[in-house]
Design a binder for these strands. Structure first.
Lengths: 191, 191
DNA sequence: CACCTAATATATACTTTCTATATATATAAA
DNA sequence: TTTATATATATAGAAAGTATATATTAGGTG
């Protein structure tokens, strides 16, 4: 899939690997991250398959070694369009080390769980601020990028609401547990 | 991370590989999927590291070859607890072939895009029905699993709302484009 | 009873994605 | 001149995900 993301970006303008990462971080950094280890091997493959062409460029005035500037070829545009109009093969995949833990919080220390949830709330509230600030900026990039940015904000808001709700439920549960435990204690002492 | 997911499941009860997949599909199938190619190598590794123990069992009355029943060891429980109380290392990762395409819909056929969006709406409306039906069932599995199920429903609802909103925006944009194109046509004809 | 099908169960090869790190160059500053 | 920093490419290796091969047994069918 990264292959097509790169082809899509080269649809906008010619770029070299380093610039591609920069671009993704600036535009989708809050939803999508990528590494050089994903970019360079993909560029190599795309080049070998004739989907992109390459020119080495001496950087004029700017830092660093020679850049490899890539352009999308006709063949590349054709394959990209074919992919774009395909039905998406696989459903959405959500992977989150926090949610993975959350499922099992029943096995651990409840107060520690609440602590981690509080950290998540803080993190996502900061994210939300940043996203709202950027929303206007994305408006200039056309409606599709703008709508994706809106989705990011919606997701962020929904998640914060859920986190706060969950915290309340867990706190209720903890106090419920404690009273149950105390009753057991009483019974033991009584017995 | 799958390593810890497996340790977590073995916290509930002893299981063999096939059962682990079944369990994940039944409980988190709508949010999380896993393959045997992820399960068996992980079980092997966990066993070699002494985090789980194994007994081969002749299936009594039931189909299939001998099962390898795994249990979590003391060492395994310790490592699991350490992980559980750790701060989540990485942020949420959302990967979706549909959203990946969506970003680039400006480069393709708009009517085809709307068609794909309609399919997504149908798919997620079916998902939502299924999830709402299951919500009560998850209640019995304890508050953490229930809250995760609620998150799934919330995410689903939010996404449908966003898809419908996006469709409207795109349709407005298409009719805007067409009128612009017609004006250009008129101008050409006029000129 | 021999044969076939379906469900159960494990295993492994392979691809893609992700992380970590090595390497090189040019600018700017000390 | 040396050093630090930003730019830029590259690759090894780990983790996750896909595809497929293989074996066993219950149960049905001829």
């Amino acid at each position: 899939m990264i292959k097509y993301a790169i082809l899509g970006l080269l649809h906008y303008t010619d770029m070299h690997g380093y610039r591609i990462k920069e671009h993704i971080e600036q535009n989708f950094g809050h939803m999508w991250s990528i590494n050089y280890g994903q970019i360079y091997p993909n560029l190599k493959k795309l080049y070998e398959d004739g989907l992109i062409s390459m020119t080495e460029m001496n950087q004029n005035g700017e830092k660093g070694p020679t850049r490899k500037l890539y352009s999308i070829t006709i063949k590349g545009k054709e394959e990209f369009t074919r992919w774009l109009e395909d039905s998406p093969e696989k459903p959405m995949l959500l992977r989150d080390p926090f949610l993975m833990r959350f499922v099992f919080y029943g096995f651990g220390d409840k107060n520690r769980s609440v602590e981690i949830i509080d950290n998540q709330i803080k993190r996502y509230e900061n994210d939300l601020k940043r996203r709202r600030k950027n929303l206007k900026k994305w408006g200039k990039s056309g409606i599709y990028v703008r709508l994706i940015a809106e989705l990011g904000t919606n997701l962020n808001e929904m998640f914060i609401t859920w986190l706060k709700h969950s915290k309340e439920e867990i706190l209720k549960d903890i106090s419920g547990d404690t009273s149950t435990e105390m009753k057991t204690e009483d019974r033991r002492i009584a017995g």
